[in-house]
Design a protein around this nucleic acid. Structure first.
Length: 311
DNA sequence: GACCTAATAT
DNA sequence: TATATTAGGT
């Protein structure tokens, strides 16, 4: 169905969050106070291409919440002070595991859809997603699982009706592939052509959408995806090409409002750092071993940056 | 080196 | 359980 395809193509970007909607995701994870308290430096100071002027340092005092300066990384588990990783905390540090929230996954799906299955390889996807801190491995791992999911979906898609857009919350239906396992994948609609790769004229409706062309606006935004050990080690390239288009229709709402955690962070007691009891933006939630599903869970620390709830 | 799949580890 | 990592191959 060409119509459907072009329809999809015409609408794909509508589903993308507009910059404004993206904002909550790109809010800095560390309040200025926190940053100061822990001597965390703004990644804006990273090395950048020679033609770029380093932006002025943020007035550490008061940052209007409406100005999503740049995304930051949250500090990692508590071994900041102890040389668990050795004196050279550098390269061998382990990042906290990434949590694929529905929002993040949606971005992933959008990227894959945008690229077309053909070009959707980890590296490309990663770049397209332009999520700060996201690694190729992260994407590769997720992609692997996602492919398996798609395969299963195809399998039970069967020849019949072909109504692939189930998208239900799991219980009840019974047509789900593996309801127990992939809630995440079910949270984002699977583009139609994902499921029907072969037949007919399937190849790429996206001849070549030069995404970078959208860079006109100097409005750069980053989304923090992962919590990384030592923020200042973050030498990620400064990725951008954040927003793809404008969408009058916001699917993104305010994912965080519901997640009000009055729990201030309680860790990282680095050398008598002042207890920052500031009103932390509810844009991130820290989940320390909140998964208690099974016994025998070692001290697993996970940073949940995006709401894990539905969207 | 990037990629893929499967298996295994955390 | 969800991710990460590794192995072995293209």
């Amino acid at each position: 169905m060409r119509e459907e395809d072009s329809n999809w193509f015409a609408r794909w970007e509508e589903e993308l969050p507009s910059p404004e909607e993206l904002m909550p995701l790109s809010q800095t994870l560390i309040t200025p106070d926190l940053a100061i308290a822990f001597d965390i430096r703004n990644p804006n100071h990273q090395q950048r291409p020679p033609s770029q002027q380093a932006p002025p340092p943020p007035s550490a005092a008061a940052q209007p919440p409406s100005q999503p300066t740049s995304a930051e990384f949250a500090a990692d588990s508590g071994d900041l002070g102890s040389g668990a990783a050795g004196d050279e905390p550098a390269r061998t540090l382990k990042r906290p595991r990434l949590v694929w929230t529905p929002q993040l996954h949606k971005r992933f799906v959008d990227a894959v859809a945008h690229l077309g299955i053909k070009n959707a390889v980890p590296k490309t996807i990663m770049q397209l997603m332009s999520v700060d801190g996201l690694t190729r491995e992260n994407v590769a791992s997720h992609l692997q699982k996602y492919r398996l999911y798609l395969k299963r979906m195809q399998g039970l898609s069967g020849g019949g009706g072909g109504g692939a857009a189930g998208a239900n919350g799991g219980a009840g239906g019974g047509a789900s592939a593996d309801p127990a396992t992939d809630h995440l994948f079910a949270s984002s609609p699977v583009p139609p052509h994902f499921l029907h790769p072969g037949r007919g004229n399937s190849e790429h409706f996206l001849p070549f959408v030069p995404v970078p062309a959208l860079q006109h606006h100097h409005q750069q935004q980053q989304i923090v995806a992962a919590a990384v050990g030592h923020p200042h080690l973050q030498s990620q390239y400064h990725r951008q090409m954040g927003h793809f288009g404008s969408s009058p229709n916001g699917q993104f709402e305010h994912p965080f409002l519901a997640r009000q955690t009055q729990q201030p962070i309680h860790r990282i007691g680095v050398g008598g750092a002042p207890p920052v009891h500031n009103q932390v933006p509810n844009s991130y939630v820290e989940d320390l071993e909140s998964a208690n599903g099974n016994g025998g869970n070692g001290g697993r620390k996970v940073l949940t940056l995006f709401p894990t709830g539905d969207d």
